[in-house]
């Protein structure tokens, strides 16, 4: 039981590091897809054998949306934007991974500090969730391509979702569906925006979006 959960969490941390280290957009999208699937399995395993139709359906829907639908949308956005399919970070990959390692240390420390009312099934759960969120934030601030920023946002969201699945008492089904729908529509709208950015500018490098600033 808890063995599977541990493996999932280790894989989650691994995908986080790979996200920080990989240079190809398509590979990063696949990593986010894997994360989405892992979270679906995690939510399924968290149910302690109390199976119910709704309880099983929700992780399944979430896995399909995060593991298949969103990556498909992003792949399409990438092809339509027809951009250089490299991430082109502002900081080197090595530095990203070092930042990730620091983030992991911070997450492990945070995980020890928090006193949860209900003990999570694995001591790795909270650190892995925080780490995934931190990876998302690192990606958002350090990558040049608009699609990479969406990927960062999704990693952040995945981390928050993992945390919720791990420690929060289950939210009502309708609300979970609402959250999922918001993320889906959000990525859809961002995909449209990326398409327009690539048409307007012939690139999707956000550091060249700098017409609107106020200087002191």
């Amino acid at each position: 039981m808890s063995e599977t959960i541990n493996w999932i969490l280790v894989l989650l941390v691994l995908t986080g590091f790979m996200l920080l280290g990989s240079s190809r957009l398509a590979a990063c999208i696949r990593l986010i897809a894997i994360q989405g699937m892992l979270l679906g399995i995690l939510a399924l395993r968290m149910q302690d054998g109390q199976w119910s139709a709704a309880g099983a359906l929700l992780p399944l829907i979430s896995a399909v949306v995060k593991g298949v639908l969103l990556p498909w949308l992003l792949m399409r956005a990438m092809r339509e934007a027809d951009t250089v399919r490299e991430i082109e970070p502002f900081i080197s990959y090595n530095l990203s991974i070092i930042a990730g390692a620091a983030g992991l240390a911070l997450s492990l420390w945070l995980g020890r500090q928090l006193e949860l009312p209900n003990r999570p099934p694995s001591p790795l759960l909270v650190p892995a969730a925080f780490f995934t969120s931190l990876v998302g934030m690192i990606v958002i601030v350090s990558r040049r391509k608009a699609i990479a920023q969406v990927l960062g946002y999704l990693a952040l969201e995945n981390g928050v979702y993992a945390f919720g699945a791990a420690v929060a008492p289950r939210l009502p089904v309708l609300v979970e569906l609402g959250i999922l729908l918001d993320v889906l529509v959000g990525v859809f709208v961002m995909g449209i925006a990326i398409f327009h950015i690539s048409r307007e500018f012939n690139h999707i490098d956000i550091d060249k979006l700098e017409a609107l600033t106020d200087r002191l």
Binding site: V160, G164, A168, I206, E210
Partner: peptide, 26 residues
């Protein structure tokens, strides 16, 4: 291009902020 830039910043910054609020709800 300017309104597009504004839209992109709005979407991304507010979505990230809102993700933190979700953590707050948990």
């Amino acid at each position: 291009h300017r309104s597009l830039e504004a839209t992109w910043k709005y979407l991304l910054i507010c979505s990230v902020g809102i993700a933190l609020a979700l953590l707050g709800i948990f």
